[in-house]
Design a protein around this nucleic acid. Structure first.
Lengths: 209, 209
DNA sequence: TACAGCATACCAACCATATGGTATGATTCA
DNA sequence: TGAATCATACCATATGGTTGGTATGCTGTA
């Protein structure tokens, strides 16, 4: 995080503002199409400040992915889907929550690291690995609940909590692509509905609660 | 793929070679990071030829998406998954086929239009709409089989053939993202396995054939 | 407590190159 | 011959990145 100073709390915030600008701008235009000047304009920062905080544009990409992991990590940790007692209910509440937050402009609900991965997976290992950490790290937070649900509901199948957690991320990411292609968020919600139905079926609970 | 000689019947193929170069290069580096020079080099064509066939780089993007729709359309039309008599078997054969062809380098099995959509959805309506046509057009080819399977197996649920066809594309696209992030094609296959399990459950057939 | 010495945060101007695109000319085919 | 298909040379600008410099805060020491 940034280092706020005593007399001027605004100082030292250039880095944070750049990361926020990156989050917003890259989600709209993609990583490559976002120029350093774009970011400096959006963050109200000069180029000198940019290259003071980030050695290269790639380094900004890595930092943006890490910043995304941190902020979304906190966001999901504070989200209300953890409250149910039954672990399966927590899993389903997670999916309902993911569905809920799909609203507004496409660039507002889609995933920064999913977008960046698609672009740079073959050209920038650093950014790719930071994106992977974010995606699979988030998936990992779901595993305990899924594993507990498997035990609680006495389920046995040839799939693991790990793979289901990853599949959930795949469905969400794929939904974002259809939403972007069509300009319609409903495409993303629709896929989560199928995913919810799948999970309910996996755990042998009825179609409608 | 040699340079067109004066009398060669290869002549006039610059456009096609550029489209193939676009398919390959954009899947590796993304649309924005792929320069016109990159494409000319890969296609063994000069810039004059490029801008003779495509008014702008954007126009190339649109044409590449359309070319993708045509070639993959023919590829899937000729694929062997249409042979089973039972429509549900055809749907499952489709998914098995999609799973099978995930092999080799990431850029070889991932989707051009899915990649482009992520990048340009907010900046280039032309390309986005061409990509959407490709994705949803392909999804539409699955609807008849799904609809027939619903009838044949006497299924009633609050989902449609259309939405399931789209969901399949979402899962496949999402799997590609996880595969790119991790560098591991298995991540994409894994999600299709879940999707196959979901479809089998939707149609009330056993876990293992 | 005072102050030297250093580190951090930031700025404005500049640079080499890459980029999309153009103007124009040559060649081939129908 | 006229249109289509290329090739060569070129341009204006955008791009990532550098340079040299300033202002301010932090820290160890006497």
């Amino acid at each position: 995080m940034s280092r706020p100073t005593k007399q001027s709390p605004e100082r030292g915030s250039a880095r944070t503002r750049l990361l926020e600008a990156a989050r917003d701008t890259i989600r709209q235009k993609g990583f490559t199409a976002t120029s350093v000047d774009d970011l400096c304009d959006a963050a109200q920062v000069t180029k000198g400040a940019f290259f003071h905080h980030f050695k290269t544009k790639q380094a900004l990409g890595v930092a943006a992915a890490q910043h995304w992991a941190e902020t979304t990590g906190a966001f999901f940790a504070d989200a209300p889907y953890h409250t149910p007692d039954d672990p399966l209910d927590r899993v389903l509440a997670y999916l309902a929550f993911r569905r809920e937050i799909i609203a507004g402009e496409t660039a507002e609900f889609t995933c920064l690291v999913g977008t960046m991965t698609q672009e740079v997976h073959n050209t920038s290992p650093d950014i790719t690995s930071a994106c992977a950490d974010s995606i699979f790290g988030h998936a990992a937070t779901l595993e305990p609940d899924i594993a507990a649900a498997i035990v609680a509901h006495d389920i046995r199948g040839d799939w693991t909590a790990e793979s289901l957690a990853r599949h959930m991320q795949a469905v969400i990411q794929g939904g974002f692509i259809l939403a972007k292609a069509s300009g319609n968020p409903e495409m993303a919600r629709e896929s989560i509905d199928h995913l919810i139905r799948y999970v309910r079926q996996l755990f042998n609970i009825g179609e409608t609660p």
